[in-house]
């Protein structure tokens, strides 16, 4: 019984890491796509243009809003890759201590 638990644990860990990797990849891409698919840098405040009527000066105020950029997407891919690579540390068939 104890031998069965020991042998199934790495398999579950490997699966968990791969699922996490897929979630990071899918979550990162969905977040980036749904929040505007911005192809520049990630923003956490967005400039809003205004005009002063009397002077005709165009000025900017910042609105607190998160807009993920390409760097965010790359970080998600990196995280997914890292988790996926980490899953390989858990062997599918650990050596049998009885053999």
């Amino acid at each position: 019984m104890a031998a069965r638990i020991t042998s199934s644990r790495p398999t579950r860990m490997r699966t968990a890491f791969r699922l996490l990797a897929a979630a990071a990849l899918l979550g990162g891409f969905s977040c980036w796509f749904l929040l505007g698919a911005h192809r520049g840098w990630t923003k956490n405040q967005v400039p809003v243009q205004h005009i002063d009527e009397i002077t005709s000066i165009h000025y900017v105020t910042y609105e607190q809003r998160f807009v993920p950029g390409i760097d965010f997407l790359l970080a998600s891919i990196g995280l997914a890759g890292g988790l996926s690579a980490a899953s390989f540390f858990f062997n599918r068939n650990p050596p049998n201590p009885l053999s």
Binding site: R39, G40, W41, P47, T55, I57, V60, D71
Partner: peptide, 18 residues
């Protein structure tokens, strides 16, 4: 209203601010 705007080109897009 007063501000100085700046912009410098970078890898992905120009970095702009004020």
């Amino acid at each position: 209203v007063n501000a100085i705007q700046f912009s410098l080109d970078s890898l992905l897009e120009p970095i702009s601010g004020n």
